[in-house]
């Protein structure tokens, strides 16, 4: 029997060594271990042995079986690994084929710019205020210190519905409405659509969008205005952006300023985009005119504030390098897909 076992073991070793795949291993296992397997037969043959012979013989068989089984397992693991490697090798993809895209749509650049600006000011504790686009003259002009027949009206060619109702020429009436209805302190931005009589071209449009800001509280200074705008400019145009103020005139602020930001093309060195100025004009701002505060029921002896306003199209065209405002309203999907 011992010889038989040695024979079986060497046969098994050979069979395992010759196995090329998992099926061969399975076959080998059946050959030695199946119901009619050679090792099984040896085990069955043990019945013929005397009880004294059985323990030693049993041990021999068990040892042979353990060795064969270990060989089988080892070979099986090796061939499993091999099979996997072959499978992986066969499954190589052409990764240059296009991806399967869900293709979400695109937000309009005006929306993107609006959101970017809003996020900046929300982060500084401002709230977003809104108001109607068709507005009474009184809120759009008069309470902003622009009485009827005032020459300052010439700078904002107005669409009139009738003598007392206009298409708002700026989002400033939202500031007025806020001052009239909300408790102090006020810290708002007012994004929205505005209208001026203007033929559409690369830099003009009869319909456009603005964001204005208003802060009213005790002790608000022009320095706070500079701080707010410089934070805004850095957030929108990059950390290195600087602002520059030039004195100007607006009826609803005093002192008033036009505000430039460093040119994003050249970083302030001077280039064609900024006409060698190093700066690009971006917005208007100032300290709220005490007359405006007073007309809106706020005591200018106690409170002060600042306000600013900018065109969103201007920010969008600047930020996204769009060469004409017209593109924003042509809605060509080849344009929209770029955002």
């Amino acid at each position: 029997m011992k010889e038989r076992l040695v024979q079986i073991e060497s046969d098994a070793e050979r069979a395992i060594a010759q196995s090329a795949n998992l099926r061969d291993i399975e076959e080998a296992r059946l050959r030695f271990w199946g119901k009619k397997g050679e090792l099984t037969a040896v085990l069955r043959g043990m019945a013929a042995l005397t009880p004294e012979e059985r323990p030693a013989a049993g041990q021999l068989v068990n040892e042979a079986r353990a060795r064969i089984e270990a060989r089988l397992s080892e070979a099986e693991a090796r061939l499993t690994r091999l099979a996997l490697e072959q499978k992986i090798a066969a499954e190589t993809l052409d990764i240059t084929l296009p991806g399967k895209r869900r293709s979400p749509g695109h937000k309009h650049p005006i929306t993107l710019a609006t959101e970017a600006i809003c996020e900046t000011f929300l982060g500084m504790g401002y709230q977003i205020a809104e108001g109607p686009e068709i507005e009474i003259d009184h809120f759009n002009f008069e309470l902003l210190n622009i009485p009827k027949d005032h020459p300052a009206r010439d700078t904002q060619d107005t669409f009139y519905i009738d003598d007392d109702v206009v298409l708002r020429t700026h989002t400033s009436p939202v500031q007025v409405r806020t001052m009239l209805t909300r408790p102090l302190p006020i810290k708002i931005i007012c994004p929205g659509r505005v209208y001026r009589v203007d033929t559409a071209d690369a830099t003009h449009s009869p319909v456009f969008h603005q964001i204005e800001g208003l802060v009213v509280d005790r002790g608000i200074t022009m320095g706070d205005l500079v701080g707010a705008l410089s934070t805004f400019a850095k957030n929108i145009f990059g950390e290195d952006t600087k602002i520059r103020l030039r004195p100007h005139h607006f009826q609803f602020t005093e002192p008033s300023a036009e505000v430039d930001v460093t040119c994003w093309e050249c970083g302030g060195k001077g280039c064609r985009l900024c006409k060698n100025e190093g700066f690009i004009e971006l917005l208007g701002a100032g300290v709220v005119n005490p007359k405006v505060l007073k007309m809106c029921g706020i005591d200018p002896e106690v409170y002060s504030g600042f306000a600013f306003g900018l065109g969103i199209e201007r920010v969008a065209t600047c930020k996204y390098n769009i060469n004409s405002m017209r593109l924003l309203y042509e809605n060509d999907i080849r344009f929209l897909r770029q955002f």
Binding site: L122, M124, G125, Q127, M222, D224, G227, T231, L245
Partner: peptide, 21 residues
């Protein structure tokens, strides 16, 4: 010169919460 005015961020003002409605 406006540009000599130092930038501040409403140091005397109460903190406000900036949230969308």
């Amino acid at each position: 010169d406006y540009n000599n005015i130092k930038a501040t961020l409403n140091p005397g003002s109460a903190v406000t919460i900036g949230l969308r409605t």
